[in-house]
Design a protein around this nucleic acid. Structure first.
Lengths: 182, 182
DNA sequence: GAGAGCATGTAATCAGTTACATGATTAC
DNA sequence: GTAATCATGTAACTGATTACATGCTCTC
């Protein structure tokens, strides 16, 4: 996962390890975190797989390493970005992919979001069924247990809203709730 | 994390490892998953720490092991459940805790949710600032990058809605969007 | 000259998965 | 009799964190 995100940031610019961490923190930090302890070994692995190259630059007394994506790396990244059977797709993993969708054609991005939306709708139905079961049983004693279920349902619904707006490249502000008092 | 969740399910009933997995899958499966490969070693560890005891029962030819929480285990669980400085609190971790809030007094549950809400509001303000920056820059080229930011904001807003409803033990159905056509 | 930020890395550890391995019991 | 489910576990591996270790460069 992180390997692909690194490739994604290298897709547009050559960066140092340090830069990459900053990009990840600021760009997809909501969905993924990295520590240097995992980043640098990962960069070595990417180099061994020939998905990136590395060139040392000496600025004054300090050596910095700039990483550049290779053609093979670009292919691997694009493959991941458009993969139909992207299985371990938690919403976080999905959003980390969407972050790079500006690199795709509109049609491709649309299709991927649509596929994800379809899967979510199935899942939402399951949750709604589960919720009904709980309500039948009329379990007032389990208020918080039920509330976590409601949370799950709301979450899916809000992702679905996001999908429908983003898919059409509508004005994202329609997602915001205006009537918010705090 | 999983250790506490296991203790939570044992808090009310003695269970086998197999049962615990079912409870986790069905109860907090939205937030956490377990495999047997992590569950059984974890149960051993809990036993070493004397947070659970284990008794073998022989049903016919099959040996089953029932796990029971100890007093110490109950204390450790309750400590976790009410901990003020619960740092690694992703929303998933938080919700996994809320799942067990029926074990708390209303006042305690209220206070914990309120604290979480306060933190989220600060975070939301940060995200809104970041969003404004993007808009100032008027980056139409980065539609999807911005859309993931909107997603983050919507997510936080929907958690805040959940907090305000749940905190007051209001009817959870008010969280549902009625005007939903699909 | 001090502190923030730039820059790279290792070692120990932790938390978890996947695949393997086995076999009993129940419901149809 | 067979398939689903009950039931427990190990071994190899993966992916990541935390703490440690070092030292330069820029800005005030």
């Amino acid at each position: 996962m992180l390997e692909y995100i690194i490739l994604g940031f290298l897709y547009q610019n050559s960066l140092t390890g340090y830069d990459i961490k900053k990009c990840i923190d600021q760009g997809v930090g909501m969905f993924y975190r990295v520590s240097y302890g995992s980043l640098y070994p990962l960069l070595d692995r990417l180099r061994n797989k020939e998905l990136v190259t590395c060139s040392s630059e000496i600025k004054g007394k300090r050596e910095t390493k700039k990483y550049e994506i290779t053609d093979k790396g670009q292919q691997v990244f694009m493959q991941w970005l458009t993969e139909e059977e992207y299985e371990n797709s938690s919403i976080e993993a999905f959003m980390a992919r969407v972050y790079f969708f500006d690199l795709l054609t509109e049609a491709t991005a649309f299709a991927i979001i649509q596929r994800y939306e379809a899967k979510l709708k199935v899942y939402l139905q399951e949750l709604l069924k589960k919720k009904e079961k709980y309500e039948e049983a009329g379990r007032q004693r389990y208020y918080y247990k039920v509330s976590t279920l409601y949370f799950g349902i709301c979450k899916i619904q809000s992702i679905l809203d996001w999908c429908s707006v983003t898919k059409q490249k509508e004005d994202l502000n329609t997602l915001m709730k205006v009537e918010r008092e705090d």
